[in-house]
């Protein structure tokens, strides 16, 4: 196995594109090294992207934030303005693993690991984040919900790298939240995750919403119906019950060692309600 640590995206792309064997991008490594250790993968080339400036920076851009794909969870937390604008995204990223994992794990890696249970992904989707992808054909911007296709399958071509994310400017009276369910209080993979972002009008009614569910399908879902019910005219308790039902209806989970189908479906509804309440509160306060 070769290890390369280029300083530019062009070099990284060239290395990945030229390798005929299995090549992997190394960001935080908290999933990659485990898969290497347990012989799930056996790459011949690792391209460490942490030496590339764009992947390691948080910048304010177009009223929003450009976040490098290799920025760690701990660094996100230490950038206070980001947490005050997009608290749901930062909370989601900070739920990944332990304090030690937070010191290394990145949102780029969380997305490109290709797990339907990735915590930061539903939060990024709910926030309307876009991934900036650089490859042999140049740069393209893709909505985060369009990056992952199925477990371990991404819509990236050979040689393409997720370099950064753009979190958009947040509209007024908008709040986001992410909740996940795990059997313990820490250290587990999400059994269900739910990210919600919603915008209120001056009277407090929801005018726009994005609802994303994790670990209930082959990839994180953007659930349009759940968003639609939130913009209805009913009283909040009714809206929340409809949201619960819409979230449940969107689930197509599997039974596995982390939860049953039935359980995931029920809890998806519960988390959607609870996350929406937090998002409402944040939208009112913003």
């Amino acid at each position: 196995m070769r290890y390369e640590a280029p300083n530019t995206l062009d070099q990284a792309v060239a290395l990945l594109a030229a390798e005929l064997g299995e090549a992997r991008v190394l960001a935080g490594g908290t999933d990659l090294l485990v898969q290497m250790r347990t012989d799930v993968i056996d790459p011949v080339l690792l391209v460490d992207i942490k030496g590339i400036a764009e992947t390691r920076q948080i910048r304010e851009e177009a009223g929003g934030f450009r976040i490098g794909a290799a920025v760690t969870g701990a660094e996100l937390k230490e950038y206070p303005r980001l947490g005050s604008v997009w608290p749901g995204v930062v909370e989601a990223a900070n739920l990944i693993g332990s304090t030690q994992i937070q010191g290394r794990a990145t949102m780029g890696g969380n997305l490109c690991n290709g797990s339907p249970a990735a915590d930061s992904v539903p939060a990024l989707i709910a926030a309307g984040a876009r991934a900036s992808i650089v490859g042999p054909q140049g740069r393209r911007d893709v909505a985060v919900e369009d990056v992952m296709l199925a477990p371990r399958k991404l819509s990236l071509a050979k040689g393409e790298i997720v370099a950064s994310f753009l979190l958009p400017a947040k509209p007024p009276r908008t709040g986001d939240a992410y909740l996940r369910f795990i059997p313990r209080t820490e250290m587990d993979i999400a059994v269900v995750g739910c990210g919600i972002c919603l915008t209120l009008d001056a009277r407090g009614a929801c005018t726009a919403a994005r609802v994303s569910l994790g670990a209930v399908a082959e990839r994180p879902l953007l659930v349009a119906e759940a968003a639609r019910v939130l913009t209805g005219n009913e009283a909040l308790p009714v809206l929340l019950q409809k949201l619960d039902a819409a979230a449940r209806a969107a689930c197509r989970p599997i039974d596995d060692k982390r939860g049953t189908k039935d359980y995931r479906i029920k809890v998806a509804g519960v988390l959607a309600r609870r996350a929406a309440q937090i998002a409402y509160q944040r939208a009112r306060e913003s």
């Binding site: 059997p183 313990r184 209080t185 820490e186 250290m187 587990d188 060692k257 982390r258």
Partner: peptide, 16 residues
Amino acid sequence: LQNPGFLDYRVPVASD
């Protein structure tokens, strides 16, 4: 065995 590691063999952690 599907859970031969501390990720899915869930021993109590300090916050539990």
